[in-house]
């Protein structure tokens, strides 16, 4: 008898639980399912794979062999250096450009602000394929290439922009300077709008110079936005792939082989799934480490 009452109780409690929370779990069911199937399972599978040599019928366990191979692989160090150079050469400059544009636009009237926001955002709507193909055309090594036409104006001779080891990576970096500042610019404008005017008025009373106002008020108060931009952009540029794939195929002589491109090649051209998985985990670790470092050194005086 008591047992039955217990069961009844449990049943009632379960029913109450479903009544209270059932909808909540239904609302999040699909995202959880998608996460388990398309993120968590592949993540664990990739981890296993990085310790295996992949065969369609039964993979072979090889321990740390893939990792050891990657660490001693010259091409991997080269790809790592290329990616680092790309990041160092693009991220800080692009952040400075976004900030500079935002500071300039912020002083204008509302209508001009909207106009410039829209015009700087427009290139971001074009796809990576479009941008890559347009720049492939601009960098055409023939005299008709737009870049070559431009340097002819100053009397320079033709350059094979994407075909030479010393200019290929630089060319891929340069194209990020023209365009793609829309979202950073809008973020900076939003944070500039959040700085109380009274702080600047107080500085004006002390007859502070424009530079000193920027150095002591604007820059520190924009730090959370700068940190956000830095982390997001570094992560993005560590995964740069499209331009290397569509414009240079990683060449010439691997001068534009980035880590993401190398992983793609190993996986889908040479079908070395194990090596590619090991490389992808090293990339993930590097990204996490850099993000943590950025938060530690830049975030120490940032309040959230």
């Amino acid at each position: 008898m008591k047992k039955m009452a217990d069961a009844d109780n449990r049943w009632a409690r379960n029913r109450q639980f479903i009544q209270d929370y059932g909808w909540s779990y239904i609302f999040i069911a699909l995202p959880i399912l998608i996460f388990l199937t398309f993120t968590l399972y592949p993540l664990l599978r990739a981890l296993v794979m990085s310790f295996q040599t992949y065969h369609v019928m039964g993979s072979e366990w090889v321990g740390f062999k893939n990792y050891a191979y990657v660490f001693h692989r010259e091409l991997f160090s080269k790809a790592l250096i290329n990616t680092l150079l790309y990041t160092l050469g693009t991220v800080p400059i692009n952040i400075i450009i976004s900030l500079g544009l935002a500071l300039a636009i912020f002083q204008l009237g509302k209508k001009s602000q909207t106009f410039f926001k829209a015009s700087f955002y427009l290139p971001a709507v074009a796809s990576g394929v479009t941008i890559s193909l347009v720049w492939l055309f601009i960098y055409d090594p023939m005299p008709e290439g737009l870049m070559n036409q431009f340097i002819h104006l100053f009397g320079f001779a033709n350059v094979n922009w994407l075909g030479k080891v010393d200019t290929a990576l630089l060319s891929l970096m340069f194209l990020t300077f023209l365009g793609g500042h829309g979202s950073g610019l809008i973020l900076y404008l939003a944070s500039l709008g959040g700085i109380p005017k009274t702080i600047y008025e107080a500085a004006d009373i002390d007859a502070a110079s424009t530079w000193s106002k920027f150095r002591n008020i604007t820059w520190p108060l924009l730090k959370p936005t700068t940190l956000y931009m830095l982390v997001i952009n570094v992560i993005g540029s560590f995964q740069v792939f499209m331009s290397a794939y569509l414009m240079t195929s990683g060449g010439p002589d691997h001068a534009t082989t980035t880590i993401a491109y190398l992983i793609y090649q190993d996986a889908f051209e040479y079908f070395e799934f194990g090596v590619a998985a090991a490389e992808s985990f090293i990339l993930a670790l590097i990204i996490v480490a850099i993000s943590v470092l950025q938060f530690k050194y830049m975030g120490s005086d940032v309040e959230y």
Binding site: T37, F38, P42, L43, R45, Q239, A276, A284
Partner: peptide
């Protein structure tokens, strides 16, 4: 998680 990590198993799946 960078997309490259899950890419290969996702593709196989």
């Amino acid at each position: 998680i960078p997309g490259q990590v899950t890419l290969i198993p996702l593709y196989i799946l």
